[in-house]
């Protein structure tokens, strides 16, 4: 029966077998909820300040969609490979799990590298976030997301080491699962940044 309440722990996936791991996963969802609120504050600031360009560039002048599209595809692909890693974990296959996780980390590192390059170019051509309210809001919003991704890359690399040293235990599985939630969540935030900052910046 679809949606039947499953009481037999052995029928559950590895990361949901222990009650404490269950609670840890639920707690991580609550953390993601608080991160939704954090990013909503930054989006609100951006929405208010995007027109206050002072002597600095307008969004239209600042943004070039080409490199950002490459960043977007890299992050979307990394979210996909992260999903494949968890799918491999569900089948108990450690090799593919580690491989897909490694690909995810590489794509994430590539994304961060491209974003750093984009920021450096922006600063060289248009000045730092001291320039205008728009640039302050832009660098804060996009940079906070980039900081999250950078942390995620380090976290994922640490989990790879943990997986290599301890094998696929329920505890390691739970940590990999919460990491995957974090990673997909960052992809969702990026979709909104791409839409609200980059695409909408090109409309007017």
């Amino acid at each position: 029966m679809i949606g039947q309440v499953q009481t037999d722990a052995r029928e559950r996936p590895l990361e949901f077998r222990d009650r404490r791991d269950n609670l840890a996963i639920l707690g991580f969802w609550f953390f993601l909820g608080s991160d939704v609120v954090l990013f909503s504050c930054l989006f609100a600031v951006y929405a208010v300040f995007q027109g206050r360009v002072a002597a600095g560039p307008t969004p239209r002048q600042l943004i070039s969609l080409g490199p950002v599209l490459v960043e977007t595809v890299a992050l979307l692909t990394s979210s996909f490979t992260c999903g494949l890693a968890i799918a491999a974990m569900r089948r108990g296959r450690t090799g593919p799990l580690a491989a897909w996780l490694g690909v995810t980390m590489l794509l994430g590192a590539g994304f961060v590298g491209m974003e750093i390059h984009e920021f450096a170019t922006d600063v060289r051509l248009f000045g730092t976030w001291h320039q205008s309210g728009f640039l302050s809001a832009f660098f804060t919003l996009v940079g906070t997301h980039g900081g999250h991704v950078s942390f995620g890359v380090l976290w994922g690399a640490a989990l790879l080491v943990l997986l290599w040293r301890q094998g696929l235990t329920p505890r390691v599985a739970r940590r990999l699962y919460t990491f995957s939630l974090y990673w997909h969540f960052l992809d969702i935030v990026w979709v909104f940044i791409f839409t609200v900052v980059y695409l909408a910046g090109k409309i007017t």
């Binding site: 996936p13 997909h184 992809d187 969702i188």
Partner: peptide, 13 residues
């Protein structure tokens, strides 16, 4: 993302 990647409904209880 929420539905297909994050298994939004998974959990005990």
């Amino acid at each position: 993302q929420l539905g297909l990647f994050m298994h939004l409904r998974e959990g005990v209880g």
